[in-house]
Simulated scan of single mutants.
Amino acid sequence: MLTVLLALTACADQAPQQPGGPGTPPSGYVELQPMPDVPPLPEELEHVVPPDELLEDLALPLVSAEMLDAIDQVRVAAGNSPDFGDPEISRDRTLVTVRWHGPVPAAVQQVVDAHAGADFAMVVEQTPFRPGDLQAEASRLITEHSGVVSAVGARAAGDGIDVMITEQAVEEAGGLDEALAQHGIDSRFPLFPSAGSVVPA
Score class of each variant (00 low, 15 high):
Q182A: 14
V199E: 10
E137T: 10
N80W: 09
S64W: 00
V112H: 05
G174Q: 00
A77M: 08
L41V: 01
V4K: 05
V170S: 01
H47L: 04
V163I: 13
D119Q: 10
P22H: 14
G102W: 05
R155Y: 04
L41T: 01
D159W: 02
E125N: 13
S64C: 07
M164D: 01
D133V: 04
P51F: 03
T97P: 11
A12M: 03
V112P: 04
P61Q: 09
T127R: 07
G79N: 13
G158P: 02
M122F: 07
A114I: 04
V163S: 03
H183W: 03
T3D: 07
M122P: 08
H115I: 02
P103A: 12
G28N: 08
P131R: 12
S146Y: 15
A157D: 12
P103S: 03
D86M: 15
L60M: 06
V74R: 09
V149N: 13
E88K: 15
G174D: 00
P19M: 09
L58D: 09
V149T: 07
V104C: 06
Y29W: 06
A78R: 10
P34L: 08
A118C: 06
E46L: 08
L2K: 01
A181M: 06
H145P: 10
L8E: 07
T9H: 06
V148G: 11
V74L: 15
D186H: 11
A138E: 14
P105L: 04
L2H: 04
E44Y: 13
E31G: 05
D52L: 05
L134K: 11
P34C: 09
D186K: 09
L180G: 02
I71S: 15
A107G: 01
Q182F: 05
V198T: 15
A65V: 08
E31I: 11
E88Y: 12
A157Q: 09
A151K: 14
G117W: 02
L41Y: 00
Q73W: 00
T3G: 02
E178G: 00
S197L: 14
L141Y: 08
F120Y: 05
G160S: 11
A65T: 12
Y29R: 01
V149Y: 11
V152L: 07
P193C: 11
H115K: 02
A181E: 05
V38L: 11
E144F: 01
F189A: 10
A106M: 02
R75Y: 15
E53H: 03
M164Q: 10
V112I: 12
P34M: 06
D92C: 13
L8H: 01
D72T: 15
S139P: 06
P26Q: 04
L41Q: 06
T127V: 04
A118T: 03
A70I: 13
Q126G: 09
P82M: 13
C11G: 08
Q168R: 12
E171F: 00
G184C: 05
A156M: 12
P105G: 04
S64I: 03
E53N: 04
P87C: 14
V198P: 05
A138P: 08
T97Q: 03
R99N: 14
A121K: 13
